[in-house]
Design a protein around this nucleic acid. Structure first.
Length: 424
RNA sequence: GGAGCGAUGGCCGAGAGGCUGAAGGCACCGGUUUGCUAAACCGGCAUACGGGUUUACGCCUGUAUCGAGGGUUCGAAUCCCUCUCGCUCCGCCA
């Protein structure tokens, strides 16, 4: 969410930012509308407060006269008239603020200066690691997974529907191994504090991180309780400090959490849906950092590196993309996507999206810090990314480490967790 | 699920229609004193949104905020209703 002052004083910059996202047609008129509403709002506030001040004076007079046992009817009447006027103006004010808030909640963040303008075709490959395996003669992960008894896609579909998978045997254990491997790496080598969070959250939390109001149809909601299944642990973990003022010397705070992630993928039917490529439920380990504005850029790079380390240890070739403005999530100011290569399907798969949100989420969720004991609190900056999402890593592992005899070589780092060197 | 009690500033806690943005304490900040530290003493110390003013740090001013929302009233931290959360007891249960 933007500060209303941005709409008021930096509208040109805001419009330019929407232009870079290719969203000026949508948001340009809303910015204009918000400026009008802001002016209306302030005029109404002045009118209301003028009358409230007068009413307070009249009420004081009533109190004084009553204490002196004198007649106060005149001031009671005046106060009542003012009260009626206040109620009327406030009705309009409420409507104005409701509409203004709705616009502010939907306006995307401004992207950082080094984010290229345009749509995904303008994404930039920043660096790559490892050598993608030739795609000839390699099998897709669903064939390997089925042959080795790791995956049971038909039964996942039977008990829940398409987009839900059942892992079995070593496949199930591989999920557990990925969880423990990633959590251990981030807690012991990267300094993250481990957390275990609820996987259903309320509306306020979803609004705090920016999933709502925009992505209502992407979320699974419960029928009888006002709760949503989390699409990422980013939501519960970031909201951990909602409404709080953190001590500056506690920053940066680095948290990691495992969770299942639930996504309806309402608009994505038929796209990359085979095997483990796009699921309604997948598991991942998430990385979240809270820091001061000055350190945010460096903290973003640091976190991205932590996510990359997972792929390096798993010996999987990947590349890092700087997303163009139009491909950057609405809440983010700058995002790096980590894409792992999956030779069986011949595709680069997104396994992490590392974003710097600036104060966009912190303002929504009211997460602040006090720079020094006597200074005013200011918003922290939030950064997060997957470290990593299991399903696509699982797919890439099977495809990249498959051998000619149909088995799968287990990368060194995973062996202590999986208990075998080769899956056969 | 049922019954009862509760929610006040960064923290603890008083407050029971107007004298309360809110006593007192702790923490914190500035100062005095003091070989150092500590103690003592003096002073300061909420947030948001408006308006005015300033090159600026600010300063002045209005309004609101005592879990959230609504109601009663000229006037609500205080009375009433709804909700949320917490605690205690009962029931149920992995």
């Amino acid at each position: 969410m933007h500060d209303i002052r941005v709409v008021r004083d930096e509208a040109d910059a805001l419009r330019a930012a929407m232009q870079r996202r290719g969203k000026l047609d949508t948001f340009g008129p809303r910015i204009d509308r918000a400026q009008l509403l802001d002016r209306e709002r302030r005029a109404a506030i002045q009118a209301v407060e003028e009358r409230k001040a007068a009413r307070n004076v009249a009420s004081q007079e009533v109190a004084r006269l009553k204490k002196a046992k004198e007649n106060a009817d005149e001031f009671v009447a005046r106060s009542r008239t003012l009260g009626d006027e206040i109620a009327e103006i406030e009705t309009g004010l409420t409507a104005t603020e409701t509409e203004l808030d709705a616009i502010l909640l939907e306006l995307p963040n401004m992207t950082a200066a080094d984010v290229p303008a345009g749509d995904e075709s303008a994404n930039i490959v920043m660096r790559s690691w490892g050598t993608p395996r030739p795609v000839d003669g390699v099998k897709p992960h669903w064939e390997i997974g089925e042959a080795l008894g790791l995956l049971d896609l038909p039964r996942g579909a039977k008990i829940s529907g398409s987009g839900f998978v059942v892992y079995r045997g070593v496949g199930a254990r591989l999920q557990r191994a990925l969880m423990n491997f990633m959590l251990d790496l981030h807690t012991t080598e990267h300094g993250y504090s481990e957390t275990w969070v609820p996987q259903f959250v309320n509306r306020a939390s979803m609004t705090g991180t920016g999933q709502l109001p925009k992505f209502e149809e992407e979320l699974y909601a419960l029928r009888d309780d006002a709760l949503y299944a989390v699409p990422t642990a980013e939501v519960p973990v970031t909201n951990l400090f909602a409404g709080e003022i953190l001590d500056a010397d506690r920053l940066p705070i680095a948290l990691t959490a495992f969770s299942a992630c639930f996504r309806r993928e309402a608009g994505a039917a038929g796209k990359d849906t085979r095997g483990l490529l796009r699921l309604h439920q997948f598991e991942k380990v998430e990385l979240v950092r809270f820091c001061t504005p000055e350190t945010a850029m460096a903290q973003h790079e640091l976190l991205t590196g932590h996510a990359e380390m997972v792929l390096q240890r798993l010996e999987l070739p990947y590349r890092v993309l700087l997303l163009a403005a139009g491909d950057t999530g609405a809440a983010s100011s700058k995002t790096y996507d980590l894409e792992v290569f999956a030779p069986g399907v011949g595709k680069w798969l997104e396994v992490s999206s590392c974003s710097n949100f600036g104060d966009f989420q912190a303002r929504r969720a009211s997460i602040r810090f006090r720079p020094t004991p006597n200074e005013k609190p200011q918003f922290v900056h939030t950064i997060n990314g997957s470290g990593l999402a299991f399903a696509r890593v699982f797919a890439s592992l099977l495809e990249h480490h498959q051998t000619a005899d149909g088995s799968v070589r287990v990368p060194e780092a995973l062996r202590p967790y999986l208990g075998v060197d080769v899956i056969r």
